[in-house]
Design a protein around this nucleic acid. Structure first.
Lengths: 209, 209
DNA sequence: GTCTATATGTTGATAGAC
DNA sequence: GTCTATCAACATATAGAC
């Protein structure tokens, strides 16, 4: 990710901008937000902001990347711990529940997921890589759980991973449309069907965090 | 759907426009298509086209409504036949497979699904009503199948319907990103897990139509 | 009903001063 | 590095002729 003028200070400032933009979008929502709005929010002029990013599309893609980093640090177990299906389920549900508190990021994500279908769009790479990484990481865990008889082996592990991803993304659409919808409940239901024994009983409903 | 100036001829023309627009979008794709592009494609000027629709957003929403009508006529069983889980599964899979042949409509649907989150957007009503109708129709069938022991009763019927909807929508995102993805296979996998006995063995893979 | 022409607005992006 | 000022490129929507 080496860019023109990526000296230490520039990189730091860039990160600072992204963090601020992340907060703004999460709090105030993304509704076809313009570069100008983000610029105002982070305390720069529009031109000043675009000094750090090649285009609007790249800016918003980077916001998503930053979100992933932040969430990963918050919700994924440290790499030292051994992966397990229980941890995977827990991480998934925690992430989904967290998403329900940052509607703007869900909007941004969903919007770019559509725009990023275009191979020319900067978000294209992001979504392809993200999907691959997501499914490869969870694929291992699921396959292992299948061998242990915890997860159904009626369908391949890769398919299960796609199901998980699809249901998460799809529930976001339903939730944006009707915010009273409980995304986590439906995701949890899928786990319940795939791995009846592995879903924590205490995970039901909107468990106290 | 009574509109200003909805005389018979105007309504007919409107329908004609929508059918044409539907074909155009399905064939040439939706990539932030403008009113002008649609107008050119259906042989009208931009102003001429907007004579029949209040706004761009309404036009595109109506294109989706027309799509639903067309698909419903093509893929849903006649109302005389008794609903059954087998028919539901078959209809779902046929629809998903068909979608893979009209990328433009999938793009349009997904795009409006995001934009329509805004209650002010004309597509909002469409998506709310569509979701409600979809889940209410399939909810009955699923609940009945649960009573017959064909579908798992580990989760409520309504939740199962949301899962189906979410996985269909979510797989569209994955497929738009990577068109080699087999949407139907994953949807079918969900049915397989929910109702092992009810999925037609011959339905595997890309069955000959 | 349909056109041409245009009003009006917004956007992302750029040039150049400081 | 950051600003002000400005640009060109669209978009949708409307007014008015025919």
């Amino acid at each position: 990710m080496v860019r023109r003028g990526s000296y230490a200070k520039g990189v730091a400032k860039r990160q600072e901008i992204l963090r601020a933009a992340l907060d703004v979008v999460a709090r105030e929502g993304y509704r076809g937000a313009s570069v100008r709005q983000i610029a105002d929010a982070v305390g720069l002029s529009q031109a000043g902001l675009l000094h750090y990013f090649d285009s609007k599309e790249e800016l918003f893609t980077e916001i998503l990347r930053t979100r992933d980093q932040v969430d990963q640090a918050a919700f994924e177990p440290p790499p030292s711990t051994s992966p397990s299906i229980a941890r995977l389920i827990d991480g998934y549900l925690r992430t989904v529940r967290h998403n329900a508190e940052v509607p703007g990021l869900v909007q941004l994500f969903s919007r770019l997921a559509v725009d990023g279908a275009d191979p020319q769009h900067p978000a294209h790479r992001y979504f392809v890589e993200r999907g691959t990484a997501l499914r490869s990481a969870s694929g291992e865990v699921v396959a292992q759980a299948q061998r242990e008889g915890i997860v159904t082996d009626a369908v391949p592990a890769e398919t299960i991973c796609r199901m998980l991803q699809a249901i998460s993304d799809g529930m976001q659409l339903q939730w944006m449309l009707e915010p009273e919808t409980d995304m986590a409940e439906v995701v949890r239901a899928l786990f319940l069907v795939l791995a009846p024994g592995a879903v924590d009983a205490g995970e039901a409903g909107d468990a106290a965090s």
